[in-house]
C-alpha cells in the first residue's frame, strides 16, 4: 500500500476523479494520505474548498477516524497485532522487543523516518498468530528473527528508493 507513495498524482486529480462528491470525502482523504503519507493543513483546506463543505467538517473526519494522521509519518509502518488471539500467542513480547530494537515508542516514528511502530487490533489471521504487519504485508507465525529480517529488507529497500527515486 505504501508503494503508492511514488505514484505521481496531484491532490487536484484525486478530487476530480471523485467528481467533487462530498460523500466520498473519506475515500478522498484516504487517497491523499496514501500519496503524501499524511494530511497536511494545505490539503485539508483545498479539500474543503473543492467539495464546498466547511473546513470544520473535513477536520472532524480527519480526526475521527484513527488511521488518518495530521503529522508526517515514517515510510513504512510496522503493526504488531495485539488482538486477543495474538496476545494469547505472545504478541506483546514481540512488541516489547521491537520497541527496544528500534528505540521507538508505540505510535512513534524512528529517527531515520523509516518506520512507524503501531499496534493493530486483529488483522484476521488469528490462525497464524502472532502476526506482524510490515508495510502492508502480513508476517505471520513469527519468531523475532524473521521480523528483524523483514525490517532490514524494508530498510534497505527504503534507502535504495530514496537514493534512486523510481521514474514516473
Amino acid at each position: 500500500m505504501q508503494d503508492t507513495l511514488l505514484e505521481k498524482h496531484s491532490v487536484e486529480e484525486i478530487l476530480a476523479r471523485h467528481m467533487y462528491e462530498d460523500f466520498e470525502i473519506i475515500e478522498i482523504l484516504q487517497e491523499i494520505q496514501r500519496m503524501e503519507g499524511y494530511l497536511s493543513e494545505k490539503n485539508l483546506v483545498l479539500t474543503s474548498k473543492r467539495l464546498r463543505i466547511p473546513l470544520s467538517r473535513v477536520y472532524g473526519i480527519a480526526t475521527f477516524y484513527k488511521n488518518f494522521t495530521l503529522v508526517p509519518r515514517g515510510k513504512y509502518t510496522l503493526q504488531v497485532c495485539t488482538g486477543a488471539g495474538c496476545l494469547a500467542k505472545g504478541g506483546m513480547k514481540i512488541l516489547d522487543r521491537l520497541r527496544n530494537t528500534l528505540q521507538v515508542k508505540v505510535g512513534g516514528t524512528t529517527s531515520d523516518r523509516m518506520f512507524n511502530l503501531e499496534t493493530v487490533r486483529c488483522v484476521g489471521c488469528c490462525g497464524r498468530a502472532p502476526v506482524v504487519v510490515a508495510a502492508g504485508k502480513i508476517v505471520s507465525g513469527v519468531d523475532f528473527g524473521e521480523i528483524l529480517e523483514a525490517i532490514e529488507n524494508l530498510r534497505k529497500r527504503g534507502r535504495d528508493e530514496i537514493a534512486q527515486p523510481a521514474r514516473s
Binding site: 460523500f23 473519506i26 475515500e27 472532524g60 475521527f64 484513527k66 488511521n67 488518518f68
Partner: peptide, 24 residues
Amino acid sequence: VHGESAFICGESTALIASIEGRPA
C-alpha cells in the same frame, strides 16, 4: 465503499453516517 476502520460501524446508523461521508 472503501471504509475507514471503526468498530462502531457495526452499528447500522453509524455505518450509514460513514457512507454519507461523516464521522461514524
